[in-house]
């Protein structure tokens, strides 16, 4: 009996910890259902009559549609390109181990270890010189390039885990390398591909600095809208910001719920495997 009680207490503590970490997020979600004066009320309101007016106003704004569309297109396209080319390279690195494998893997990783402003500075100079700023194509390609290191690292880990005997069997049975890659290896590393897609998507989705620097009014995504709306202009429109933020942070949180078993792989470049 006391065992069950202590177990119940233990579980209550765990839920409390989870809720404490979620509280700031919850507060903004709550605020998005308030009117402007309710958001700024002192003392803060916990009980109130929720309104959907903020969302109605948000979805009616052409600026929201435009930037949200940008966020979706940039992240989906960049991630698909990145994972496709990374898969091929990861296969080559894993199976043929060309001479420069270790060095190239190191170079790839070092791109992601660099502070964002240092990574974007030379690209900015190049984009200005060639007139590539504020273009969908060049923005997508840059994001794709920035998603490659992570994808190659994750996918190489997964392909290393597939025995080369499958390849040998394939060759003996007369398969071409194309079908070995596409029909033998790919299905077995599908979890890795999904993990690479999801976590690169979250990265590009949340990315602000690069878009701010090499983008413009055409290609700006929602994080740019969020950040510039804050730092410029006097009064802050909290109803707009809270509803926009709520809509925008939903996809990554949903992704964590559905792909929780990839969280560890996704947050560690594939260097730590397992589930929590």
């Amino acid at each position: 009996m006391s065992g069950r009680l202590s177990q119940g207490l233990y579980h209550a503590v765990l839920w409390l910890v989870a809720l404490v970490f979620f509280a700031p997020v919850f507060w903004i979600v709550l605020s998005s259902f308030k009117t402007a004066s309710q958001i700024l009320a002192v003392p803060p309101l916990l009980v109130f009559r929720p309104t959907l007016a903020n969302y109605a106003r948000l979805f009616a704004q052409p600026a929201f549609e435009h930037h949200f569309f940008n966020s979706v297109v940039l992240s989906v396209l960049a991630v698909l390109i990145a994972v496709a080319v990374s898969f091929l390279a990861a296969f080559a690195f894993s199976r043929f181990r060309p001479g420069a494998t270790n060095f190239l893997m190191f170079l790839l990783l070092s791109i992601r270890m660099l502070p964002g402003s240092a990574a974007i500075l030379p690209v900015y100079l190049m984009y200005v010189a060639f007139g590539w700023k504020d273009s969908y194509i060049w923005m997508t390609l840059f994001y794709a390039m920035f998603s490659i290191p992570f994808s190659v690292w994750i996918l190489k880990g997964f392909i290393d885990g597939v025995s080369p005997r499958f390849d040998e069997t394939g060759i003996v049975n007369g398969a071409s390398w194309l079908s070995i890659i596409a029909r033998l290896t790919f299905p077995q590393v599908l979890p890795g591909v999904v993990a690479a897609l999801i976590f690169n998507f979250i990265f590009v989705w949340n990315e602000f600095l690069f878009n701010y620097i090499i983008g413009g009014i055409n290609t700006a995504n929602i994080p740019v809208l969020l950040a510039t709306n804050l730092s410029h202009g006097g009064g802050i429109d909290w109803t707009f910001l809270s509803s926009l933020t709520t809509v925008y942070i939903l996809p990554p949180i949903i992704a964590v719920y559905f792909f929780q078993r990839f969280l560890l792989v996704g947050m560690t470049f594939g260097t730590v495997r397992g589930e929590v």
């Binding site: 970490f21 979620f22 949340n206 942070i249």
Partner: peptide
């Protein structure tokens, strides 16, 4: 519970 706990690290930093 774990989704709520891990939410802060996937939330858009600017947001």
């Amino acid at each position: 519970a774990l989704t709520l706990l891990f939410a802060p690290m996937v939330v858009t930093p600017v947001a």
